[in-house]
Design a protein around this nucleic acid. Sequence first.
DNA 1: TGATCCAGTTTTTTT
DNA 2: AACTGGATCA
Length: 688
Amino acid sequence: MLDNLNNEQIKAVQITEGPLLIIAGAGSGKTKVLTTKIAYLIDQELAGAKEILAITFTNKAAREMQQRIKKMIGKKADDMQISTFHSFGVRIIRENYMRLNYGRNFTIFDANDSLTLVKKILKEKNLDPKIHNPKNIKNRISSCKNNLVSVKEFQKYVKGYSDEIVKDVFAKYEEKLHKSNAVDFDDLLLKPIELFKSHPEVLKEYQKLFKYILIDEYQDTNEAQYVLVKKLVNQAQNICVVGDESQSIYGFRGSNYRNILNFENDFPNCQQVLLEKNYRSTQNILNVANQVIKHNKQKKEKNLWTDNKKGAEVVVNVLRNEHEEAEYVAQVIDDLQKKGADLQTIAVLYRTNAQSRIIEETVLRKGIPYRIVGNVHFYGRKEIKDLLAYLRLIYNINDDVSLLRVINEPSRKIGSKSIAELEKRAQEKNIGLFEALATSRELVFKNLILLLKEQSEKMSLTDLVEEVLSKSGMREELLREKTAMAEVRLENLEEFKSITKEFEEKYGIISLEDFLAEISLMTDVVEYEDSVPQITLMTIHAAKGLEFKYVFVTGVEEDILPHRNSLDSADDLEEERRLCYVALTRAQEHLYITYTQMRQIFGRRVIATPSRFINEMALASEKTMIVNEDSNLIDESIEYNIGEKIISERYGQGIIVAVSSDLLTIAFEDEIKKFIKGHKSIKKVKEE
DNA sequence: TGATCCAGTTTTTTT
DNA sequence: AACTGGATCA
């Protein structure tokens, strides 16, 4: 088990008792250490699989680690639960919902639901959302909760009118959330803490259960997560945290890299292991990354080194604008591909999601297969959200946000006026919306939900979805529409059934409860085939923890990286530098950095300046590249309309479902693809 | 009530 | 350039 580990790594695995801090530089084999350690604990029979609490940052990381451990120790890993902080919170709340004064069927509100709720409250309080930015208020509420500041405590910090508003909305928000028998993302951490405060005997049970606690990405824990961990640690203090303050990039979400710097103060008897040997990158790449991060003041001294070869020079290129930047990236990728590079080993990174569009268009035009990580492709679609709202309402009839979403979907002639009356009634009687349903139209809806609820208890998830589709009238309405768009929506809904089916097959029979909990915590929902050769486009944040042989870091300009919103705070600027560091250290063999002279922002051309981080890299040379855009593949004269049929060389016949300025979205038999208008690889099908 | 149009706004990053 | 929410009209 320990065969492929270096001395420090072995030490990190074998120190099982007492607090342990593992500082693991980028690419130093952190995941390997963690998984080996867990396998070791089980294999040495120091703990049963259920007695280990292992927390990672993303669901994806959790899944990956689970698989690795399984490979090492086989069946014994079956009971092993690796979770994120949030999914761990769900478990605790579920096991204790009564003590927390919640009903069994509680709903988890995602960020969108929370925002909807804030907007609704503003409306009720007759506050202008233009003056009181709902997103802003939502963020402030969230940061309060992440810092364990209750409404009552917030009162103390209130300075002036706008704070007063935030406080009022916050109070109402908490009230409504509870009335809806719902928790938001932050509650998933907060409620367990509340529980442990009010029920020390329950805390004791969990402390007894978890003999070993392991926390990954400790530099990205926020106050609530930190408190939660500290509470769970028992007398034996078998807590192992792993992290690297140089890779802390979630400050905007309340994470505090000082948690890792303070670990020694929290656990004075802690042991420490430093993993400084990098196995990932070439010397050249590591040098550049080290040069940049050197400029941060707040950090633990460490010296990441490698005995990998020097490798290729890091390439920096200046392009005239974002189109040529994307073109350049695509050309290089094209060349790499011709030389036999595997597309899966190539990643293009950017600071903001907005940058992805042009890159996507360009690789599309070049015919380079790609995937975009973190796009809410599927679950963000209206029809899917509607269906989910039905399921959530069926599960928890107190969920007012979901009720409002579907009460008139499809149209039941319950418009804004009827809804206003319904809300008034509910408010007067101080009851939930569902209970307040009274008019004949509303009662039809109420009975529909009640019927479905009854059915939900005796049929499979997939059958339930089918029932919702037919009984709600969603399917009927889409069939009636007879537009290409409706056709696609219908297909998406059918696709949803195959997702639930997959769930059922994977986990045996799955309850509505499990399914909804799973879905609401999933962000990387689109399960992509790892076997399909394609390049990866994603934000730098999304790239954390990953590695690629070839990495392109684009838009390395002032106002983007570092982002303009972080320029007036020294702390924020250091976080941007760490972000840059994370981007650079994703690369194994080849690192390409680009910036432009001119960029369009909000539809306006703006002069761009190279990022200060480029200077900090202290590179010997950089090149200005003039890229000629290759336009002979495109025939701009062709016009397209929704509903027209298209034939593609690669995907066969499809139908246009959306047209934007440069892009077409085309639905084929079993997938939806985007194309550049007029691209020679697609042709219109003439119809009589 | 629902469809369509227009004006104003947006983009930092996400469990 | 794309999306939202509000205003206007059928």
